[in-house]
Amino acid sequence: MRLEKGLVQVYTGNGKGKTTASIGLGVRAYGNGLKVIMIQFLKSGVTGELNVLNNLGENFKVYRFEKEKDFTWNLTEEQKEELKKEIAEGFDFAKKVVKENMCDMLILDEVMASVNGGYIKEEDVVKLIESKNENMELVLTGRNVPKAIADKSDLITEMKDIKHYFNKGIPARKGIEF
């Protein structure tokens, strides 16, 4: 199966569920015989979904280019430079995936955080969107979608934090948040 028309979907906002939504789309595509590649930026720890997705075989692959690190706001300048190189390597791979049309759905998880953190240029994401094959679905996640990327998108869903148990002091829970 091939997609007749691939679109650009964005999942953004300060609420929980952006990555979860993109994985759900990927699983649906995979279940219909489509090939999915997911590149995760600014994520390096083991997660439950990663454990499952890595067992799906060649038609759903997750790539991470970053070594495990602390949160970006806790990094030294040297660690930030290393992170910048790792993110650049991941984005170069995304450009290769698009150029070589290596999948039916490409998910760039936390690409907005990489743009907003100054690790990827906004105009480079726009160029990637413009260069994708018409049959490739492109899914982008992360808070604060820049206007130029929003303008190129076909769907934008905002996850809005109305009430969150983190505000009650309940930390991230294994099996739910990771």
Rank of each mutant, 00 (worst) to 15 (best):
Y30Q: 08
G31M: 13
G31D: 10
N32I: 02
N32R: 15
G33Q: 14
G33P: 12
G33M: 14
L34C: 13
K35Y: 07
K35R: 15
K35I: 04
V36E: 07
I39K: 06
I39P: 04
Q40S: 11
Q40C: 10
F41C: 09
K43F: 13
S44V: 04
V46L: 08
T47Q: 03
T47H: 02
E49D: 15
E49F: 10
L50I: 12
L50Q: 04
L50G: 06
V52L: 11
N54R: 15
L56G: 05
N59Y: 13
F60R: 07
F60T: 01
F60W: 06
K61F: 03
V62W: 01
E66F: 07
K67Y: 11
K67N: 12
K69I: 05
K69M: 12
D70V: 06
F71Y: 14
F71P: 01
T72R: 15
W73G: 01
W73S: 05
N74K: 15
N74V: 04
E77W: 02
E78K: 15
Q79R: 08
Q79C: 10
E82I: 14
E82M: 09
K84N: 11
K84G: 06
E86T: 06
A88T: 07
E89C: 04
G90S: 12
G90E: 01
F91R: 06
F91V: 05
D92K: 14
F93W: 04
A94Q: 11
A94K: 09
A94Y: 02
A94V: 06
K95F: 09
K95R: 15
K96L: 13
V97S: 10
V98Y: 10
E100P: 02
N101Y: 08
D104A: 08
M105N: 08
M105S: 05
I107P: 03
I107N: 02
L108Q: 05
D109G: 11
D109A: 09
E110N: 09
V111M: 03
V111G: 06
M112Y: 09
M112V: 11
M112K: 10
S114H: 10
V115Q: 06
G118C: 11
Y119M: 14
K121I: 03
E122S: 14
E123P: 08
D124S: 15
V125Y: 11
V125Q: 07
V125F: 12
V126C: 10
L128F: 12
E130N: 15
E130K: 15
E130Q: 14
S131N: 15
E134D: 13
E137L: 13
E137Y: 09
L138H: 07
V139A: 10
L140I: 15
G142Y: 03
G142D: 01
G142A: 03
R143F: 04
V145K: 04
K147C: 00
K147L: 10
A148I: 03
K152M: 10
K152H: 04
S153W: 03
L155R: 02
T157S: 13
E158M: 00
E158C: 01
K160G: 00
K163I: 00
K163A: 00
H164N: 01
H164A: 00
F166I: 01
F166N: 00
N167P: 01
K168I: 00
I170V: 12
P171Y: 00
